[in-house]
């Protein structure tokens, strides 16, 4: 089933591939995909070294992830309308213009790692649906699943509508997951896998809701709480080895 009110803005990363393949498998296809094309050096989130053909997902039932299947290939396989944008920076005016022209009201966002969406893109009258790798509002910021694994022995994901302050937009759905068998594969496999699980559930909820706003969870964000920043390799190793 193609979802007419939902588009996707995706970079060619392992996470975007995971998202698209898993939602396609569950019949939750977006009506349009804009692919941020990268013709330069490898960017954050791209895992071109992975030669594994198929990976059985630990967190999504009956789903096998194909790391080497490109977004274009998946789009063609499921007959999804797609276009390339020859840019990697989503904040550029020509990218914003393309997004403005989309008919879809909700855009699943899955850009290159480390990019922050500026106000000029967030204020174009669309909802940017982002799946955060971590349980919000407890774990705001970057690489938070390593921190939650180290502190509380779980990983998580949360779907939010993006706002100008990082990871503070309205939460639609969030879930805690038990730790995977091998945390060293979290960056390109398990983090994407739990996010995809939450994305699937969120799209199903959007299907059933009258208004997107009906899904916003009541949450209390403590303004003074500290964000998590990219985990230092020493803590990352402790998180992996301790579990």
């Amino acid at each position: 089933m193609i979802k007419k009110n939902i588009a996707m803005l995706a970079a060619e990363t392992s996470r975007s591939r995971f998202y698209l393949q898993s939602i396609a498998k569950k019949g939750l296809l977006p009506s349009k995909i804009l692919i941020l094309e990268n013709r330069g050096k490898i960017l954050a989130g791209q895992d071109l070294k992975n030669k594994t053909l198929e990976i059985k997902s630990f967190y999504i039932e009956n789903f096998v992830f194909k790391p080497n299947e490109t977004l274009e290939e998946t789009c063609k396989k499921y007959n999804i309308n797609f276009n390339f944008i020859n840019e990697t920076n989503v904040n550029l005016d020509n990218v914003i213009e393309k997004l403005k022209n989309l008919q879809e009201k909700i855009i699943i966002y899955s850009g290159y790692g480390g990019t922050i969406l500026r106000s000029k893109i967030l204020n174009i009258g669309k909802y940017f649906l982002h799946i955060h790798g971590g349980y919000l509002p407890d774990y705001r910021g970057s690489t938070t699943n390593y921190y939650s694994a180290l502190k509380e022995k779980y990983i998580g994901a949360s779907s939010i509508i993006m706002s100008e302050k990082i990871d503070t937009g309205p939460i639609l759905y969030r879930k805690k997951f038990k730790l995977p068998p091998d945390l060293s594969k979290i960056d390109h496999i398990y983090d994407s896998s739990v996010r995809s699980n939450v994305l699937i559930k969120t799209l199903q909820m959007i299907n059933e809701a009258n208004l997107l706003e009906d899904l916003f969870l009541n949450q209390k964000v403590k303004v003074n709480d500290m964000n998590y920043f990219i985990i230092h390799p020493v803590l990352k190793h402790l998180s992996i080895l301790n579990n």
């Binding site: 985990i231 390799p233 992996i240």
Partner: peptide
């Protein structure tokens, strides 16, 4: 520090 490589116990 993005996507830092995993090197096992040897790294520590």
């Amino acid at each position: 520090y993005m996507y830092s490589e995993y090197g096992g116990v040897k790294f520590l």
